[in-house]
Write a protein that binds this DNA or RNA. Sequence first.
DNA 1: ATGAAAGCGCTAACAT
DNA 2: ATGTTAGCGCTTTCAT
Lengths: 339, 339
Amino acid sequence: MPDIGDVARLAGVSNATVSRALSGRGSVSPRTQERVREAARELGYAVSANASGLASGKTANVGVVVPFLSHWFYTAVIEGAQAELTAHGYDVTLYNLMGSGDERRGVFERSLARKRVDAVIAVSLELTDDELGLLRAVGKPVVGVGGPLPGSPSVAIDDVAVARLATSHLIALGHRTIAHLGGDPATERDFHVPSNRRQGYEAALNAAGIPVDPQLFHPTDFTIESGYASAKRMFADPDHVPTAIVAASDEMAIGALLAARDLGVRVPQDLSIVGIDGHGLAEFFGLTTVAQYPERQGKAAAEAVMRMMDGDASEPTLAPVEFDLVVRSSTARPARSER
Amino acid sequence: MPDIGDVARLAGVSNATVSRALSGRGSVSPRTQERVREAARELGYAVSANASGLASGKTANVGVVVPFLSHWFYTAVIEGAQAELTAHGYDVTLYNLMGSGDERRGVFERSLARKRVDAVIAVSLELTDDELGLLRAVGKPVVGVGGPLPGSPSVAIDDVAVARLATSHLIALGHRTIAHLGGDPATERDFHVPSNRRQGYEAALNAAGIPVDPQLFHPTDFTIESGYASAKRMFADPDHVPTAIVAASDEMAIGALLAARDLGVRVPQDLSIVGIDGHGLAEFFGLTTVAQYPERQGKAAAEAVMRMMDGDASEPTLAPVEFDLVVRSSTARPARSER
DNA sequence: ATGAAAGCGCTAACAT
DNA sequence: ATGTTAGCGCTTTCAT
């Protein structure tokens, strides 16, 4: 592996000039610039990240922390952030909190403190005060995605508004008996997303003067399986059969869709279903949903940390994240008019 | 941020001793060891990755390269690899090849050459000779996952055997008209997985003396949508309706399952379906499948690179990767006996 | 078992 | 525009 001295010698200049020519910082005559580039190419030279980082205090690397990886939302956020970061010369190192508490603490204590990264993007993390402290102690820009991050700017949709929109769509269609599949408050983590969505659902109902019926709420995990089970259970109780469902996620909604199908309940004739997310599978299932765009959120977070690293000390005010109601074939007016 | 000197001063020893005490290399008396640890804790000291890396030539970081992120298999592999790596003190930096060719080349030229990583794990990559050259030029341990990687050891299932197993299961049940949903050879990348699986399908047929009917092969993308479309098309041709389908992936199989449902074709009474993968959704859909275990593969790859980094210069012979036939409710004997 | 000291390969003043 | 030089914060011989 050639070092900067080899390049300097071949180009007939000093180390400093090579450094300047290759980094673009400082002034170098076009001619020398070209000669240095050429020499570097010829030698297959690449700067040592460690040496450069040690000398400059910058690593050109940002840490992305996720609670776990195997979920559509997280991978999409990472993909969006990484594309943006890579395009600007940053590498991405991934920290996965999944697993034991020990490892979890280690991520904050060891890895993030090691000056491995210039900034961190924290995705959908519900952190303890302890962890927040460690995160802040790193002294680097931090931005959240997917929910608020105390003390740091963050990119996230307004979950209340999103759920309100989904519910209003149903109300506008004429539905009045609307069930909600939402996260079980008991097992809730991750930014209170579930309870915010539930709030939005109730707000829409209230605004329309429709009483909130607790019997119409069904605690459900954010999975197809759980949505399926909830929907089946719902139809087992003939006194509380809704004409429509708003699910807190598309996966739940798809589960409900499948349950309806198995039960012979026609969607949307007998039952309307709306999800939240804009999951890749929603289109296939003809699911009406409120789409959020996780890749864009990742991209926005990446832009924010880069701005902050560029010395824009002021915590950037992040533009609100858009979401759209995407109407497909799982919602329609109720068959039996509900006055 | 305290540095090693601060710790040394507080503990009343030299920098060298701090380094030894904290890294575990070299000998330090238990007493000093404890004092140093204590001092480090008190100061919130963490070694600088850059300084340590520069001095030692090791980064405690491994690169994981994937073609893209948003797919079950890749995220599972990463999760498995990362858990293992993290447990041994390594960080993981993620390189995503998705996107333009320029960025793709940049990953190899810039990032991997920068001595950012001590080793690389390449997941399901079909690399050009050029890229393979660059990868090897890094001079670090490299192991593949999900398919062969010319010149490097790799962790992968035997796709031919897997498909043979899936197909044999159907044959053993009494099926003789077995369709195959497989990757379109035209658009194939990624290790020839599709054609290997097709080969396995044909091998099983041959072994049973069943002629291979090209009409029974349906080029299909590795998605639910595409599996759905293929299955629908299949039933549009009454002359070539199979009693069973072996799909090259679980997602295809689930699509076919859904298509059958929509068509009123009962599974498994009228049609048996077997997938390949062990996808998370397979259980929900009652899909019989041949499960591979991507997390385990990721873990195995991580173990292999760690062994190689520990100076085990000999390229490790990797243990073959297991797979299992998981029989659920999508396969049964054919209704009309097919002699 | 511990300390002294020489780098690791680069960047960033500071000169010129 | 370019060269000189002093570190960046560690690890690692080499002594002791």
